[in-house]
């Protein structure tokens, strides 16, 4: 058996801790570090305080093509590509840093998280195995995640050509009405609702 270097073990443990903190599943840790399963389990429990979730990782490539996930995964993959292309950062380190930047974007703009770290990691793997690719939108010129076997001539992204009901969730509607209605109107509406009730 090859003798394990203590320093590399410490480094891997450090990486594993960071990955657990951003929400990586156990399978991600197993494939990115050479630490044993028992150690990773212990580490996970120590960092998170709970046992890791069981079951398979999300494996569908189609998920990344649905509207909202497509917006978020396109943002992530653009960040990841810029980082790997222009700096020496690569591999899991680059995934981690891109994910941190993605999280910062969410916090800065008060947008809810759609892409989990494990999904982001899966996305990069899908790109490596050419199960997904990006193509430029003919209107805005941005790069968006698409399926390699679809037709991409005159491709329009989900943001330039929005699906009719996209983003019109109950929550978004409530926020919009709260923003547009003046306070006085709001209270009168509430009163009406009360009367109806």
């Amino acid at each position: 058996m090859a003798k394990k270097s203590l320093i590399s073990e410490v480094k891997e443990t450090q990486l594993a801790i960071e990955l657990i903190q951003v929400g990586a599943r156990l399978q991600v840790l197993e494939s990115e570090t050479s630490l044993s399963r028992e150690r990773l389990l212990k580490l996970y429990k120590e960092v998170k305080g709970v046992s890791p979730p069981k079951g398979m990782l999300p494996f569908s490539a189609d998920w990344f093509l649905t509207w909202m996930p497509n917006v978020h995964s396109s943002l992530f993959i653009n960040t990841f590509r810029t980082i790997t292309k222009h700096t020496e950062c690569a591999g899991i380190e680059a995934v981690l840093k891109s994910y941190r930047l993605y999280q910062e974007f969410l916090v800065g703009n008060q947008i809810e998280e759609v892409l989990s770290f494990t999904r982001a990691w899966t996305l990069v793997r899908f790109f490596e195995s050419r199960m997904l690719q990006t193509t430029a939108c003919c209107k805005c010129g941005g790069n968006f995640v698409v399926h390699p076997n679809d037709l991409h001539t005159d491709y329009e992204c989900g943001l330039c050509r929005m699906p009719s009901r996209a983003g019109k969730t109950k929550k978004a509607g409530m926020e919009a009405s709260a923003m547009s209605a003046s306070p006085a109107e709001n209270t009168s509406r509430k009163l009406k609702q009360k009367k109806v009730a």
Partner: peptide, 14 residues
């Protein structure tokens, strides 16, 4: 707002 910001972020990240 959030959609416009996401869209701009995608373009700027690329």
């Amino acid at each position: 707002k959030s959609l416009a910001q996401s869209h701009a972020a995608i373009l700027m990240a690329g």
